[in-house]
Computed example of a mutant assay.
Amino acid sequence: MATPRLLIPGLYELTLPMPLTSVNVFFLLTAEGVTLIDTGYPDHGAGVLAGLTALGRTPAEVKHIIVTHHHVDHAGNLAVLQRYTQAQIWMHPADADLVAQGQCLRPTLHGSPGLFNRLAFSLARMLLPRTIQPARVDHLIADNETIPVAG
C-alpha cells in the first residue's frame, strides 16, 4: 500500500492506482483536524483510509472533504469516505448536482479539440465507469469563496 508523501509541512500527497495511470489524494493536517482533497478512483477507499492511518490519524479526525470536480478519479470514493468520516463535503455547484445523482461524466455536445484529445476521451469513455455511488454535498463553493480550512 502506498504511503502519503510530505509535500510541505502539514500537506501530504497519496498516489493511488487507476486504469492506465494514477491519481493523487491530498491530506491537509491542521490543529482542527484533517481536510481531504479529492477521494480517488472507486473501490480505493480502503487505500485512502490506510493513508490516513499511516499519518497517525483516524477517520473521525477528517472534518472536511473538498472535491475539486466530479470526475470518477476525484469523486469516486466520496460516498464511502463520507460514511466513514462524517466529514462536511465541499464542491462547486456545477459538479455537486452530478455527484448527488451518481454521475461522473458530464454530457457533452461537442468533441474535444485535437486528435489526441478525441482519442483519449473516447478511450476514457470505454474504460472508466460512468457512474459512482451518489453522495451528499454539504457546502456549495461559490466563485471567489474562501473555504474556512487551515486559517
Rank of each mutant, 00 (worst) to 15 (best):
T53R: 09
A54M: 10
A54Y: 08
G56A: 15
R57C: 08
R57A: 12
R57Q: 09
P59K: 00
A60T: 11
V62G: 00
V62F: 03
I65W: 04
I66G: 02
V67D: 00
H69N: 15
H70F: 14
A75D: 03
A75L: 03
N77P: 09
L78V: 09
V80T: 04
L81W: 01
Q82K: 12
T85A: 05
Q88R: 12
I89S: 01
P93C: 07
A94G: 06
A96K: 01
A96T: 05
A96L: 03
L98W: 01
L98G: 00
L98M: 07
A100K: 07
C104V: 07
C104K: 00
L105T: 14
L105F: 15
P107L: 11
T108G: 04
H110C: 11
G111R: 13
S112N: 09
S112E: 06
P113I: 10
G114H: 08
G114I: 08
G114L: 12
L115K: 04
N117C: 14
L119Q: 15
A120C: 13
F121G: 06
S122Q: 14
R125G: 12
R125V: 14
L128W: 07
R130P: 02
I132H: 03
Q133V: 07
Q133C: 05
A135S: 11
R136F: 10
D138W: 03
D138H: 06
H139C: 11
